[in-house]
Amino acid sequence: MKKEVKFNTEYEVSSKDILLTIVIGNGQPGSSRVKLNGKLIAGGDINGLVIGKGNEIKGSTLKITTVVNDFQINTNRTSVQYLLSGGTESKRYYLEANVDIDGDSVYYFTNIKFI
């Protein structure tokens, strides 16, 4: 059974570059796909990705799909941190979900609107 986590939020930009880092935790493997206004801008491991200047991307929506698979035998926990910086303040969005069956995947769908 596919488990989905959906998360929508807003992030207040400044004039600086907006940076995104995604940390998939609990020793589980996973991958992400990042789209800005429907256009793919990055995939795979996301570490310090420059989304764009705050004043240029204001009003845009960042859509992130992250899939995490349960590799660990000793835990069914999966987690993802979305770290945004460069805006009026740095933000950490933390999502987690347990798989029901060993080896299942969790699908994280996140939308971040830049305001």
Binding site: V23, I24, P29
Partner: peptide, 14 residues
């Protein structure tokens, strides 16, 4: 160790 959450432990680190 696995009873607790480890948000910063990546698969690569593991």
């Amino acid at each position: 160790y696995w009873l607790f959450d480890h948000p910063d432990l990546t698969f690569k680190d593991y």
